[in-house]
């Protein structure tokens, strides 16, 4: 099992970083030929940064759109964020002071994450409009994330695993020195789902994470009368 997970995580890591890196490169190289911010929009770069920060941290547009989706979505994402930060402790040794400090917050954020996911999933069944637009992959994605959350929570609060060995396993992976992974069913499920999620990340709607930063309606300053936005392919037309 140790070898299986070692290979799986190397594979997942490569697909995740190369795939995501390629997508980000692909977004970045594709020109935005016209100025299309959704107005009213900030007129300066600083203003755009602030708008983007509100979008990414507070989900401002979603808040305007639908309070329930915002509530569940925000709970899930903020929970996930804290949980992810908390998991850094498996990859650094010694554990930094602030990282040790936030451990309890990350621990309970897992509940927030799971509750948010459950709420989002419930809406896919209960709200007619959202049931209509949901695809099987939308359900599977939520099932996977919830599975990750619940197995994680179960290891924190119900049936502990040997986290010292888990840490040794991951530190070992990073040093190409494979250490035994404790045999624990919840851990196996947890890690398998995480690896799977990493693998599908660059090919799925999870691309909304980098996507939001490249969204022209949100990342452009409203300055078209002052600045000419000329894409390379559009400049070619001018020359012909």
């Amino acid at each position: 099992m140790t070898l299986f997970f070692a290979i799986l995580f190397y594979l997942a890591f490569v697909i995740f970083t190369v795939g995501l890196g390629y997508k980000i490169y692909d977004f970045a190289r594709t020109p935005a030929p016209l100025s299309i911010p959704t107005t009213p929009a900030p007129t300066t770069t600083a203003g755009v940064t602030f708008r983007m920060a509100r979008e990414v941290i507070l989900f401002e547009s979603l808040f305007k759109g639908n309070l329930w989706i915002w509530l569940f979505g925000w709970m899930f994402h903020m929970g996930l964020f804290l949980v992810l930060v908390r998991h850094l402790r498996y990859f650094v040794d010694p554990v930094w002071g602030w990282l040790a400090f936030i451990q309890p917050f990350g621990k309970y954020a897992g509940f927030m994450m799971a509750a948010g996911l459950a709420g989002l999933w419930a809406r896919r069944f209960l709200v007619e409009r959202i049931r209509y637009i949901s695809t099987p992959s939308d359900h599977l994605m939520l099932a996977m994330l919830l599975g990750i959350g619940l197995t994680g929570l179960s290891m924190s609060f119900l049936s502990h695993t040997d986290i010292i060995s888990v840490k040794a396993f991951f530190l070992g992976l990073m040093a190409f020195d494979i250490q035994p992974l404790p045999a624990h069913p919840a851990l196996f499920i947890h890690l398998s789902l995480v690896a799977l999620l990493m693998i599908i990340f660059p090919f799925s709607k999870l691309l909304h994470a980098p996507g939001v930063f490249f969204s022209p309606t949100r990342n452009q300053a409203d300055n078209p009368r002052e600045v000419r936005h000329l894409a390379p392919w559009a400049a070619q037309i001018e020359k012909s």
């Binding site: 692909d26 594709t30 020109p31 959202i130 691309l207 490249f214 969204s215 309606t217």
Partner: peptide, 24 residues
């Protein structure tokens, strides 16, 4: 068009079917 318009490319990839727009 996917190669010419970042808007189209990002918008095709990014939707998570959250439903915020459905009644707008």
């Amino acid at each position: 068009l996917l190669g010419k318009y970042r808007s189209l490319k990002v918008f095709m990839d990014s939707c998570v079917h959250c439903g915020s727009c459905t009644d707008k």
